[in-house]
Design a protein around this nucleic acid. Structure first.
Lengths: 162, 162
DNA sequence: TATTGTTATACTCTATAACTATA
DNA sequence: TATAGTTATAGAGTATAACAATA
C-alpha cells in the first residue's frame, strides 16, 4: 500500500511552483536577494539584542557623516518626504541616539546630530554590519562581490535617469 | 557679481552628502538599485494607464502558471502571511482579474485562478514588463545582465540558508 | 511669498491572535 | 485536533494637504 512514490497531493502540497518568467526579471531577482539580505540583517541585530532596521542604520550613518544636516535635506538624501521623516526621527530621538539641535543661522531648520550615545551605538552597529556583510557575501568571491556592487550601481544610475 | 562658482550654501543646499561606508554595503546598493528599478516599473505602467505594482504582477504570474493553487500555498510562495494575502486578493478579485473558486476536493480551500479578463490583462502587463526590463538593463551588456542575475541568485541562496 | 518642520489623515504592507467552517 | 480562510487589530512606511514659525 502506501502513497505513490512521486508524492500525493497532501494538505501541505510541497510541489515546486512554476515561476514563469519571473526568475529572468531583474526587478524580481533584485527584490528576492534584497529580502534575504535584509532578513540576515535583522537576524544579526536581533541575535546581538539590538533593534535597528537597515533604514535606521543608513540614516544614522548619514547624520554621523553630515552633522548639522537639516531634516528636509536628509529626507531628500533618503528619497522620502520630509513629513515621513518626522516619526522616524522621533523614535531615534526618544532612544537618545539623535538630537534635533537649533540651527544658529536659520530659525526654521533643525541641525541634526548624533548624541554621544548615538555615536557609541553606531560603532556597535557598524561592527555587526561588517559581520553581516561577510555572511551575505560568503557565497561570492571577493571579485564577484566587487562585480556585483559595480553592476548594481550601473543599474541604479541607468534606471534613475529614465 | 553673482555667487562664487563653487556654490554658496543657499537654502536648498545641493552639496553632495558623505555616504560613508554605505556604497560598499551589499544591502545598501541592492536597495538603491531596487528602488530605481521599481520606480521605472511604476512609471511604465502609469504611462500606459495601468495600475499594477510589481508585487501584483508577480502574484498574477504565479496564479496564471499554477492555476488552482490555494491561498496558503500562494502566501508561502510569496513569503507573506496568509492573512496578509486576503486584502490583496480582494482587490484583484474586485478588479475582475482573479477568481476564488471552490475546490472540488477540499471545502476549506480556494482554488485560485485568473479570469479571462485577468489573462488578457496579464498579457498586456507582460508586454509592458518586457519594455521595462529592456530599459532598466539598458546600461548593461547582455553578458553583464546575465552575470548580474546569476550573482543575485547566488546571494539569495546564500543569505536564505543562514 | 517661500521654506521648514509638524500635524492630520489615508493607504498599503506587514504580522499575530482569534474566529468559522471544514477536514 | 488540525487546517484554510477570514477578521480584528496594531505597527511601520509611505504620501498629500494644510498649518505655524521663520525667512
Amino acid at each position: 500500500m502506501g502513497r505513490p512514490p512521486d508524492r500525493g497531493s497532501d494538505s501541505a502540497d510541497r510541489r515546486r511552483l512554476d515561476h514563469g518568467l519571473l526568475p529572468s526579471l531583474l526587478g524580481y531577482v533584485l527584490q528576492r536577494a534584497q529580502t534575504s539580505v535584509f532578513a540576515d540583517f535583522s537576524a544579526t541585530f536581533a541575535r546581538a539584542g539590538e533593534a535597528v532596521t537597515p533604514g535606521e542604520f543608513g540614516l544614522l550613518v548619514l547624520v554621523d557623516r553630515n552633522a548639522g544636516i537639516s531634516q528636509t535635506r536628509l529626507a531628500g538624501a533618503l528619497g522620502i518626504d520630509r513629513s515621513t521623516l518626522v516619526p522616524i526621527l522621533d523614535r531615534l530621538q526618544d532612544r537618545g541616539l539623535l538630537a534635533r539641535n537649533r540651527s544658529p543661522t536659520d530659525g526654521r531648520t533643525h541641525a541634526l546630530a548624533l548624541t554621544a550615545a548615538g555615536r557609541k551605538a553606531l560603532a556597535r552597529f557598524s561592527r555587526l554590519v561588517r559581520g553581516h556583510e561577510k555572511r551575505v557575501a560568503s557565497g561570492l568571491s571577493a571579485d564577484e562581490t566587487r562585480t556585483l556592487i559595480a553592476l548594481l550601481d550601473k543599474v541604479h544610475r541607468a534606471a534613475r535617469s529614465l
